[in-house]
Amino acid sequence: MFPMIFRRGLVGAMLLASLASLPAAAQTEKALLNVSYDPTRELYADFNNAFSKYWKEKTGEVVKISQSHGGSGKQARTIIDGLEADVATLALAYDIDEIAERSGKLPKDWQTRLPNNSSPYTSTIVFLVRKGNPKGIKDWNDLAKPGVSVITPNPKTSGGARWNYLAAWGYALKTNGGDEAKAKEFLAAIFKNVPVLDSGARGSTTTFVQRGLGDVLLAWENEGFLSINEFGPDKFEVVVPSLSILAEPPVTLVDEVAKKHGTTDVAKAYLDYLYSPEGQKLAAKHYYRPRKPELADPADNARFPNVTLFTIDDVFGGWQKAQKTHFADGGTFDEIYQPK
């Protein structure tokens, strides 16, 4: 344990040292900083290795990639406040929109620059329930029933929770013929069943898994799989609702920073590599749905259950609009807790 910590500290120190001596070594060695959100930690640890190897073979250049993880909104804020990220890979487009809007470090049309809305992999929202599904939870309407305890993070602070909220809203619209008032009532009924609002997705997972609170956790599909892997299929199972949202975690180059660092070409190649067979394979391995499943390992693909997905653009007219209607101060989420 001790030597391990020591070694990590040493690696950290060496990383810092290498960052500090960056200008001198710029010719032979490049450094990239990828600022990402919480549950991509394992994916990018793997992907960075693969990319460094690929880049070395292709150009002979050594590229050192550092990762930073945290809540998506918080990460966006640190970039706005000056963290020099060459690429940003966040949970939702709204956060990158805000970086473009507030810092001007990338153009506002950033999302059109890469294929598939700049999201090389997708995910969705599923239910994690306790083994045997004692409350018989099958679909979104079961979450609104009295006596069911639902765990989700706070949509005001968590990107994942916004996807949860919008998925439930989309289901309610569809089952009520597009009636917005009914959808709000439905969401209010669900949130009446929420005993704790953690600030982030990992916090909610802890509440559900470790504290034993709640009958069902609304989670990213990849988080659900990771929880089962870690705590055993004898404890939890994933329930897939009849309808859910297509969560598109987008990636982008932060133009101004990359230009300043002289890393534009390698940063672009890094993002393109996410769309390559190797990148798609790694995404699927880490429980993200690849955009081109034919490139991924069929065994990995088989783990993703079939589910009808709708997009945020179809139902809500994009993130800017969804954010304003639902999550801004005075939006539908606030009204659930303080009815006018």
């Binding site: 809540g71 909104g73 918080k74 804020r77 706070n154 005001k156 602070t157 801004a328």
Partner: peptide
Amino acid sequence: PLIIITKLEQYD
């Protein structure tokens, strides 16, 4: 303090 953090998360 959570209200303050929440507002920050919303870029407010």
